[in-house]
């Protein structure tokens, strides 16, 4: 008896589904080399002018740089808060555990547009109370992104914690360690990989965040997704194709690299 395998029909249909998933990513590649200033497929001659735009244009630079900074800060804060929360829950195991976890998961469960309205409200209020961190500012974007990505970081850290042996916490505690000593010397070093994963996840989500960002920024804090959005809204700017290809190539490299690493290690 062999193992259970899909038949030819299933494989054919799955191939079609796979093509469907890859199609839009493949389509932007030729488009990014178009010589035209508007969205038109290249006819014969190819051009790098849109890549040059990304490379030279100060607006694109500013947006990329802003997104990098927001991503670094927001993911660091989110990872910190998520780690503190998950560790605390892991230690205390409070009776209200399910309720508390449900609460911090809200921004992930609530429809993004509702979160956007909520954060729009908050940022408008901050704009009056503390304009430096309110609507359309760097810190405003950071705070909003932390809200949006922190549930994902919590999930990753909790999964990491669930993998480690509770008895090492008990051992540390029984030997007289304070909660801070046990955390810093025993628990955190053992979930290092989970912390990195949570941070990377948070960074990627912040880097791509658009729904909320649209509501809480206007002309000052233009993140990269917001600039792409602007390039898509009115007359579609083929520079978006160039930046998309760059992002797709990076993603593809990372994903393929991971698969390759995993498959060769086996």
């Amino acid at each position: 008896m062999g193992t259970y395998r899909p038949g030819p029909v299933a494989i054919l249909l799955a191939v079609l589904a796979g093509l469907f998933l890859l199609a839009p990513m493949l389509a932007v590649i030729p488009m990014s080399f178009t010589p035209f200033r508007y969205l038109k497929m290249p006819e014969g001659e190819l051009s790098l002018r849109h890549y040059r735009t990304i490379w030279e244009n100060a607006d694109w630079h500013a947006s990329i740089w802003l997104s990098v900074r927001v991503g670094l800060v927001a993911s660091s804060i989110a990872t910190f808060l998520a780690t503190a929360f998950s560790l605390g829950m892991w230690y205390v195991q409070p009776r209200l555990k399910a309720l508390l976890i449900g609460f911090v998961m809200l921004p992930m469960i609530v429809p993004p547009v509702v979160s956007a309205v909520i954060l729009y409200f908050f940022m408008s209020w901050l704009a009056k109370a503390a304009p430096a961190i309110g609507y359309d500012t760097f810190w405003g974007v950071v705070i909003s992104h932390v809200v949006m990505v922190v549930p994902f970081a919590v999930v990753v850290v909790m999964v990491a914690l669930s993998q480690i042996d509770r008895r090492i916490e008990m051992a540390a505690r029984g030997m007289g360690a304070s909660i801070w000593q046990a955390s810093a010397w025993v628990i955190l070093p053992n979930i290092g990989f989970g912390l990195v994963a949570a941070w990377v996840m948070a960074f990627v989500l912040s880097w791509e965040e658009i729904a909320v960002t649209l509501f809480i920024t206007s002309i000052n804090a233009i993140t990269l997704p917001r600039r792409i959005w602007m390039g898509l809204r009115d007359n579609v700017d083929p520079a978006v194709a160039a930046i998309s290809v760059i992002l797709i190539v990076i993603t593809l490299a990372v994903v393929l690299g991971r698969i390759l690493w995993r498959e060769t290690r086996k």
Binding site: P24, M31, L232, V254
Partner: peptide
């Protein structure tokens, strides 16, 4: 791969 690619790039790809 699609999972990690920005929603904007994907929508744009369909536009193309």
């Amino acid at each position: 791969v699609p999972f990690w690619i920005s929603v904007l790039s994907r929508a744009f790809g369909w536009l193309v």
